[in-house]
C-alpha cells in the first residue's frame, strides 16, 4: 500500500506539470486552432528566467513574477510576429512555424543564459512529509496545489467573466464572435499571454524538483501534447485529466512493470484509448463540413 502510494505521489506531481502544459496547448488551440509546439519553451523560460533574474540580483519572488511577465511577452510576440502574419495558412504550416519558434527560443536561451542545468531552492524546505508510510516533498504539494489553483482560476475566468466568455465564444465560432462585437485580435493576444503565463508558472513551480536547462521544454511539450490529445484536444477538463493520467501511467509503469518501458506504457494507453475513442476521453465529436 505504501509502495503504491509512493508511486501515486510521484505520478501526480509529474502529472500536474503535464496537465499545466496541456492546459497551455488547449487555450491557444481554442482561440486560434494552432497547436503551439513552443509550449514547452514557455515552461523552460519560466524556470530559466527566474534562475537568472535572481542571479542578476532580483529577490526570488520578484524574479518569479518578472519571469511570468517575460514569458507572457514572448507569448504575445509569438502571436504578433509569427502566427498573425501567417493567418489563413494551412494548419500543418502553422505547426511548423511554432516548431521554428521553439527552435529559435531554445537557441535564444542558450545564448542569453547558458547551457548548464540550474535549480531553484524549494519554496518551503526539503523536509519530506510522511503520508501513510510514503513520503512527499513540500515542493510536490506546491506543484499540485499550483495546478489546482490554476484550474480553479481558469474555470472562474472562462465561465464567470465577460472577457473569458468572449474567448470561449471566439473558439466556437470566430466569425460569429466578431459579429457580436468581440475584438478577436485582443482575444488571440490574451490567449497566447495566458497560455505562456501558465507554462512559465509551471516551470517555476517544478524547477526545484526537476531542475531546468535551455532544452528542458522539448520533452514537456511532447508529454503535454500527448496529455491534451488523451483528454480530447480543446477540452480544459480533458487536458487536466489527461496530464494526470499520463503522469500516473508513467509512475505505475516504472514501479510495477519496467522502468525501461515506462514511457511506452503511457503511449500504449494513449493509442488504445484513441482506437476506442478517436477524439480522446472528453473530445468533441466533430462533423466535417463538405
Amino acid at each position: 500500500m505504501e509502495t503504491f502510494l509512493q508511486f501515486l505521489f510521484g505520478g501526480l506531481t509529474v502529472g500536474a506539470v503535464y496537465a499545466m502544459v496541456a492546459l497551455g496547448f488547449t487555450i491557444i488551440y481554442n482561440a486560434s486552432d494552432v497547436i503551439n509546439f513552443a509550449q514547452g519553451e514557455f515552461v523552460m523560460l519560466g524556470g530559466m528566467c527566474t534562475v537568472f533574474f535572481s542571479l542578476w540580483g532580483l529577490p526570488l519572488p520578484l524574479a518569479a513574477v518578472a519571469a511570468v511577465i517575460a514569458a507572457s511577452l514572448v507569448g504575445v510576440a509569438l502571436n504578433k510576429l509569427a502566427i498573425e502574419p501567417a493567418r489563413g495558412a494551412n494548419v500543418v504550416t502553422l505547426i511548423i512555424i511554432t516548431i521554428g519558434a521553439s527552435i529559435f527560443l531554445r537557441g535564444l536561451a542558450q545564448v542569453v543564459f547558458d547551457k548548464q542545468f540550474h535549480r531553484l531552492p524549494s519554496f518551503s524546505g526539503d523536509q519530506p512529509i510522511d503520508v501513510l508510510g510514503a513520503t512527499l516533498t513540500p515542493q510536490s504539494l506546491w506543484v499540485m496545489g499550483g495546478a489546482a489553483v490554476i484550474v480553479v482560476v481558469l474555470w472562474y475566468f472562462f465561465t464567470r467573466t465577460t472577457f473569458g466568455k468572449s474567448i470561449l465564444a471566439t473558439s466556437h465560432n470566430r466569425l460569429a464572435a466578431r459579429l457580436v462585437g468581440i475584438n478577436v485580435e485582443v482575444v488571440l493576444l490574451a490567449s497566447f499571454a495566458l497560455s505562456a503565463a501558465i507554462g512559465a508558472l509551471a516551470g517555476i513551480l517544478v524547477t526545484p524538483i526537476t531542475l531546468t536547462s535551455f532544452d528542458a521544454g522539448t520533452m514537456l511539450a511532447l508529454k503535454g501534447f500527448a496529455a491534451a490529445i488523451l483528454g480530447g484536444m480543446g477540452n480544459p477538463l480533458g487536458a487536466v485529466v489527461g496530464g494526470l493520467l499520463v503522469g500516473i501511467a508513467e509512475a505505475m509503469g516504472a514501479g510495477y512493470l519496467s522502468s525501461e518501458y515506462k514511457d511506452a506504457v503511457a503511449f500504449l494507453i494513449i493509442l488504445c484509448v484513441l482506437f476506442v475513442m478517436p477524439s480522446g476521453l472528453f473530445g468533441r465529436r466533430g462533423t466535417e463540413r463538405v
Binding site: F7, V14, I209, A251, G255
Partner: peptide, 8 residues
C-alpha cells in the same frame, strides 16, 4: 524528472 518509483 522523477525517479521515486524506481528508487522505491
Amino acid at each position: 524528472t522523477d525517479m521515486t518509483p524506481q528508487l522505491t
